Amino acid sequence: MRIGRPAVIAIAAALVLSSCASNETPASTGSDEPAESTLSGTLNAAGASSQGSAQEAWISAFQTANTGVTINYDPSGSGAGRETFIAGGSDFAGSDSYLNDDELAGTFASCAPDTLAVDLPVYISPIAVIFNIDGVDELNLDADTLAKIFKGDITTWNDPAIAALNADATLPATAITAVHRSDDSGTTKNFSDYLNQVAPTVWTEKPADPFPYQTGEGAQGTSGVVDAVTNGVGTIGYADASRAGDLGVAKIKVGDEFVEYTAEAAAAVVDGSPLVEGRADNDLAIKLDRLTDDATHYPLVLVSYAIVCEEYADAAQGELVKEYVSYMASADGQAEAAASAGAAPLSEDLQAKVAAVLETVK
């Protein structure tokens, strides 16, 4: 892996990086405790807001174990995170979209000359279809109906297509407000990819970070979508499942059943999906299988990546990135993300693949 030099470029006022964790040293437990960490320095990163809760937990744990290290993560969105990293303004990016062909064909200011960056899966999560409809606690949706709602073809909650899927519900005539991400978002790309694969005759636009249709209401970031759905009337949106809170969450149709999300069902889809073809051996971008009809799977899922250089111009900075991302993808890091954000842990096989690539980072 070419890990470019996270030039700890003083990320200017434009990046309001949120340094989320204390650097408290754990209390001494006796002579058998591990040797004190000698790591030191500052990492600046930006990207996927879906990773926000997990990053807070990862940063807290890593800084506690390595008191000389400070980590700042700005949940500015996947697109903004990749742009910042490519421009050399951060040491790694968090992204729900892997690097596309155009990005891979360019240069990475954070990386050593003549080296590239790679995508490493670190976070798996279901995407929840969240809703706020008076008098409705449960909602079933198939892909065609969901696509028509967000495309603007279905405009009221008592539409016959929705009623046919929810025979036991009393659906109001309330107008639908479909809330999407206004920023470039990997969550949007994954949501669009699901609809494009499963309901291709309705959702005809190819998946991309920008929301493809001039419909509904846009909101900035995961928190913006959640706030808009929470504070609106007759609202529906999509967001990382860790942020669903007390909102209603729709079941989606998989095969002949309506399935609610679970971490296990999301992980099952990832485990059954191949790597993207035609990329470097050390790039672990995953082509998700959305077309499963196995009701133990939840195909509306995202894989979020840490995008790092194969080689950093500043070796010390590369070592910091390597150590921190290794922790994120480790069994301990994945358990932390599961506990704090409801994430689906990477399988042991995928953890091993990520660790093997990180061993080559310098």
Score class of each variant (00 low, 15 high):
A109Q: 06
L350T: 15
P113L: 07
F191G: 13
G4I: 06
E217V: 07
T204V: 15
T84D: 08
Q55D: 14
L43K: 12
T107S: 07
R290L: 04
S304K: 04
E205V: 11
V303N: 14
L116C: 05
A7Y: 03
D332Q: 13
L15D: 05
R279H: 11
V198T: 06
I124P: 02
S50Y: 03
K253A: 05
P75G: 06
A80C: 03
G4L: 11
S125Q: 11
S90K: 01
F62C: 07
D184T: 13
V361Y: 11
A173E: 11
S90H: 03
R290C: 00
V136R: 14
K148S: 01
L120Q: 02
T215H: 00
G237I: 01
Y261I: 05
A341R: 08
G94I: 09
Q317I: 00
T42Q: 10
T177S: 10
L358N: 12
A87T: 02
T38S: 13
H297K: 14
A93M: 03
T201Y: 01
N158S: 03
K253Y: 06
S182H: 11
T215W: 04
T292Q: 07
D281Y: 01
E257V: 00
T222L: 03
G216K: 07
G79S: 07
P34Y: 09
T262C: 01
L171Y: 09
T42S: 12
H297D: 12
E217D: 06
D349R: 15
G89Q: 12
D332L: 12
A161I: 06
P126Y: 10
L99Q: 15
G186L: 03
E323Y: 01
G218Q: 13
P212V: 14
V8M: 05
G152E: 04
E257K: 09
A244N: 00
S192P: 10
V136C: 13
N231K: 09
G278H: 02
L165Q: 13
Y305D: 03
A35H: 12
G333S: 09
I71E: 02
T222W: 01
S49K: 14
T292H: 04
N100Y: 02
S185V: 00
V233F: 11
